[in-house]
Design a protein around this nucleic acid. Structure first.
Length: 493
RNA sequence: CGGGGUGUAGCGCAGUCCGGUUAGCGCACCUGGUUUGGGACCAGGGGGUCGAAGGUUCGAAUCCUUUCACCCCGACCA
């Protein structure tokens, strides 16, 4: 299958074809019969679960609690915030009826026209509206604040074109929704969460990201400010990987959520929301994979170490297993997830290729000749390098190797991003450079008009105004008007 | 919704232009044996309303009409 994959890479006239094949071949997901939806298979879901676990822990460390709000939102709720509904109206699935009946004309079942809902229900594209409709009842005094809620849920956005993990009609995500007594506190939480996402991306996904602010044009519908983390994929395209929105008092006003402050004055509540989705899976796949398949960062790999025995008969297997079992125990004691694959319905060569395709970071191979020498063959997925190590103390060696791999793939991705990031001065230069892919740092006059012109001319979008970027002012590459700092443009997913 | 393409076994495809034995190949699957340090080999076996409907014909996967589905490139978007 590895060779198949290589051929596909060469043959594929685009990266997305290669990506799709990889998702299927690595057993992560497959397309469902329903347009634009996806079945996440056990191996893919195991990776998502690891992401969930770590994110959930990180959220809770900041005082966030989990809750759950309904899937269906009354249409009137969605329409309360004008910009918000405008942003999502075009891609909503709508529930109009609550019953089916047998077709009087014969075969099959039809929607019962008698069973029309008085008010249509929207399958949530995001939950701000239903949550703020609920918070209204929860909040009366400054003593009720802050509310720091997160929910793990599915949402639905009826997208025109879909791609597994990157953009599906239904996707899994977490959405945090906080209510605060002051603008400052809400802004601080908004920034805190984008920093948390960046930490997660870098420490767990081994994916370097750029933190920044979205332009007015790219902002979340209904937000006063949107923070983003932007990652670069191996083909040089940008992927928005997480967002944190400062919603100001927009939703509080739309849903009439007020509290009495310490001065006994009524005041609208300050809000923010933040989320990451299964899109992170797509980001993970596209950040590190190679022609042999997935490359998973050890911190998220469901199987961190696989051990493959090589034997000629049952007796030999038994002998090898007796050497391997203590290693398995030691690895587990060190908190390493290990799979000892002694299945005899697959030959070793098949197992090697298969675990590479699935991105397992470290492979140990033990055969009769290793037992004799007291060694083990050790292969690291990121570089595909093989070496021999003494059986004695192998667990400790593996533990440090996992950390080394984690650091190495991060560095590799960072190096790639840096090589693919250029600075330009003129619009002509920009048009040339954008064709080569990657991030382009350029001056921009801050207007939506200019931003849209650039998109029209080059298909590049303004990814973000970087938070940690160079803040030297300059002149807009298009209009020559003053620019406060360089911003990042790229083609994106 | 525009432009292009594809529907034939679980998957990937050939056959369609130019109608003609029982629709074929690779992978996968099943049985038996030999194998096992990089995706094993040999032998045997099972599996198809050729996307759907209608038409032309002695005869249709192949020609005609209609229709449906999916994929890719745009517009939209996390």
């Amino acid at each position: 299958m590895a060779t198949e994959l290589k051929e596909l890479t060469k043959r594929a006239d685009n990266y997305s074809q290669w990506y799709n094949d990889l998702v299927v071949k690595a057993d992560l997901a497959e397309q469902s019969p329903v347009r634009g939806c996806m079945v996440i298979k056990p191996y893919g879901y195991a990776i998502w679960e690891k992401m969930q676990r770590e994110l959930d822990r990180m959220f809770k460390e900041t005082g966030v609690q989990n809750a759950y709000f309904p899937l269906l939102i009354p249409k009137s709720f969605l329409c309360r915030e004008a910009e918000h509904v405008e942003g999502f109206a075009k891609e909503c699935a709508v529930v109009t009826h609550y019953r089916l009946k047998n077709d009087p004309n014969g075969s099959g079942v039809i929607v019962d026209p008698e069973a029309r809902l008085e008010e249509e229900l929207i399958v949530r594209p995001t939950s701000e509206t239903i949550i703020w409709g609920t918070y209204r009842n929860w909040i009366h005094s400054y003593r009720d604040l802050p509310i720091l809620c997160n929910q793990w849920a599915n949402v639905m956005r009826w997208e025109m074109r879909t791609r597994m993990f990157l953009r599906t009609s239904e996707f899994l995500w977490q959405e945090g929704h906080c209510a605060h007594a002051t603008a400052e506190e809400s802004e601080a939480r908004t920034v805190q969460m984008i920093n948390l996402y960046a930490d997660f991306a870098e420490k767990y996904m081994a994916m370097p990201v750029i933190k920044g602010v979205k332009s007015a044009n790219e902002r979340f519908a209904g937000a006063v400010n949107t923070y983003t983390i932007e990652a670069m994929m191996q083909d040089g395209k940008a992927l928005q990987s997480g967002t944190s929105h400062n919603l100001g008092q927009n939703f509080a006003k739309a849903f009439d959520v007020t509290f009495v402050n310490k001065d006994n004055q009524p005041e609208y509540v300050w809000a923010n929301s933040w989320g990451v989705s299964t899109r992170l899976m797509g980001a993970l796949i596209m950040s590190h994979s190679d022609d042999n398949g997935l490359v998973l960062p050890p911190h998220l790999a469901p199987i961190q170490v696989v051990i493959v025995p090589i034997y000629k008969n049952a007796e030999q297997l038994k002998q090898i297993s007796s050497h391997i079992e203590p290693i398995v125990i030691k690895l587990k004691e060190l908190g390493i997830s290990v799979k000892y694959d002694d299945a005899d319905n697959r030959r070793p060569g098949f197992k090697f290729a298969d675990y590479e395709l699935k991105g397992v970071p470290v492979r140990l191979v033990v055969g009769a000749r290793d037992i004799e020498k007291g060694t083990v063959e050790i292969m690291r997925r990121d570089t595909l390098e093989k070496s021999e190590a003494p059986l004695e103390g192998i667990a400790g060696h593996v533990k440090s190797l996992l950390e080394e791999i984690q650091a190495n793939i991060y560095q590799k991705a960072l190096k790639h991003r840096e090589e693919m990031t250029r600075t330009v001065e003129t619009y002509d230069e920009f048009k040339q450079e954008i064709e080569k892919g990657g991030f382009i740092l350029a001056h921009w006059d801050g207007t939506t008009e200019t931003e849209l012109k650039i998109k029209e001319d080059t298909k590049a979008t303004l990814r973000c105004i970087p938070l940690d970027g160079d803040t030297t002012p300059g002149k807009c590459m298009v209009t020559g008007r003053p620019s406060r700092q360089r911003v990042i443009f790229a083609r994106n997913y």
